[in-house]
Design a protein around this nucleic acid. Structure first.
Lengths: 210, 210, 210, 210
DNA sequence: CATGAATGAGGATTCATTCAT
DNA sequence: TATGAATGAATCCTCATTCAT
């Protein structure tokens, strides 16, 4: 007598469902943090039942980790390939990087992963370690290679490639955090693009850029 | 029905109790974040009963806010006085600042407030606004004054005081976050002192420091 | 972390569970009043878990209101139909009414709603208004119709139908309250039947009943 | 160093304090019922400390009982003396009674004891018994005497004095409850005076009043 | 595979009562 | 006597997780 009215065609491919679930999880974790996110809301937003979420991800923590894994690996791979393959002059590369970050911030599609990681690192040391190794590590490696080559070419001088990499990313991190934390509280929003471009210029000058 | 077993002499000065409670709250919020912290644990760590915590702070959120307020006001005042009163050469001032940050990181007594703020900003917009205005704003003001004077003296050039202030703090923020997020995950801990000193030197060179 | 021990077969019809829960709520509210009733006890008595109660009734107040609604609507409808459809002589109708009340009191199955309403009216003005309108109002309407017809027939005289209705119910209310309040305190229980029958006779004589 | 600023002269006579406390208790119990009333609010309203309340009344229940005792004894005594001493014609006496009740209702100073009793009788059987015996019992005794004398005089007939007493008070009880429960919910407030006067007339006619 | 009703441990908050001062 | 800070048992409600269907 009861006629179930599936909200979607009864069988979407499992990959599709998993993607929906992770999308929903991203939205919920972003908005409420790990503790604050409710599995029920994830399920509803993914248009599946609570049980289905548990079918693919046995715990809330597993869902969180899967989310991080999914979204980060391809981006890191892309960036890493770009950085390691690049052998041109430094300035355009750095400019391109900060332009991408600036555009991401401006578009409002800023990934909330850094914020989530900062907030939840203590709760999930394994996750922090993973992020440190696979994300931050890979990115720093790529940047270090970039700067090492520039040093070898004599394009810059006065530090090591690794140090340069660490120094270079600091204002990027600051811009991202600023946006994530203070966006709502700022009367006059702090524009990241001019800031990041000034950073590149000052940074290169500091490195005796030819 | 109630059989009280005083955990300590019935009368410590209320200020002492409040301080104990806030200390305990700092520890618990730092370790578990806002959601994860349990009022019961705060009470236990402060060696008072749950009821006593509520005697002074009517809600968990009020406790959180009181904590932020207590620890931040005096530090900001101190730093602000120093920065606005200072009129000497730039380099020693910047070095002193990064040395203090480096020492704080090394001592393990790093304040967790930035991390807490980043994690909870969305939940407490008012708190984020307060922090933006009273802490970050005051510090940036002080630094802006510092750089403006150096610009006026011709000690540096090529940017504005405000931009310089924003650029200067980025690696400090990165160091602090790095420590708070990755400390446990690092095989070889990233030493902040050399990094911050290199930052100052590169930064000043970038500003055409005389 | 959760180890469910189903207290009954996992699937009773939801209507059955809701009925069980409302039955349990009636018992608990009757015995302890609104504040005194514990959701846990309601759940235990309904042989479901606390969570299940909240599944159907999101708050204690919602449970209370649902309870009132469930039990009152059908009774009022029945009584109202009877009263409005009746067009015979007055005395047998009034006698039948007081006999039903007397039987309810004697059977111990006296509905506690009037008592609950009196106790909680201040806390739930909306509920009091509902009760006034849907229960008391409908009953008085029915009785008013009854007396108006008797007046029109010349069977009684000397007042209005509405006044007669209000006067007629007073001893019924008193009997019910008496039972609910003093039942346990009475050495010699006050028998409601003779009282209510005397009421009808005296009442009709007062109305110049032919 | 701390200079206590007593809210009143340090030592008011204990009787005065007790009276203040009971006044406050009446207000709080009336508004919130037994469970809902908070000892702290009673203390604040009586302008004493919580400890002082407990000095005179060891528990909340004791306070509640003391309150009932204080306010009821004298009123009952007064009414009882009046009723037992009265030997005049019935109608003026009954009219005087209903006028007093009507005035009390109209003045808004309706005593909330009946409502409190109804709400809390189950929780405090001893209190219900006391009320039944000392208040209701004494009042009914007085009324019974009144009606018995009228019967003896042949002023009325057709029932017993006790039955008449019970029947007479029903509309009074109804009026009081009506006011306490429905006052806020009524668009057109039900006026008790005409109702009660109609009651007396109909009641006496029913008793074959000469 | 998918569902969603059911579970119950957990945690924030309240408040009657105590007792050192 | 009088105070009010301190206590902690009690209770409402939430939500991650389970499992019968």
């Amino acid at each position: 007598m009861v006629e179930p009215t599936p909200l979607r065609s009864r069988r979407a491919a499992p990959e599709v469902r998993q993607a929906d679930i992770l999308d929903a999880a991203l939205a919920e974790f972003s908005e409420h943090g790990f503790e604050g996110a409710r599995m029920e809301d994830v399920a509803r937003q993914a248009r599946v039942s609570k049980g289905t979420v548990y079918l693919y991800y046995p715990t809330k923590q597993a869902l969180f980790e899967a989310l991080i894994m999914r979204d980060i690996a391809p981006r890191v791979a892309l960036a890493s390939v770009f950085l390691k393959g690049y052998d041109g002059p430094l300035e355009p590369a750095l400019m391109r990087i900060v332009e991408m970050v600036g555009a991401a911030i401006a578009s409002g599609k800023l990934p909330v992963y850094p914020k989530l990681l900062i907030a939840e690192a203590q709760r999930f040391p394994a996750l922090a370690a993973f992020y440190r190794r696979e994300v931050v590590g890979k990115m720093l490696e790529g940047l270090t290679t970039l700067f090492d080559r520039a040093l070898a070419r004599g394009e810059i001088s006065g530090t090591t490639g690794e140090m340069a990499a660490h120094l270079f990313i600091a204002p990027i991190l600051k811009s991202v955090m600023w946006q994530l934390v203070f966006a709502a509280a700022e009367e006059v929003p702090f524009a990241p693009e001019p800031y990041l471009k000034a950073h590149v210029q000052l940074f290169l000058r500091g490195l005796n850029h030819a």
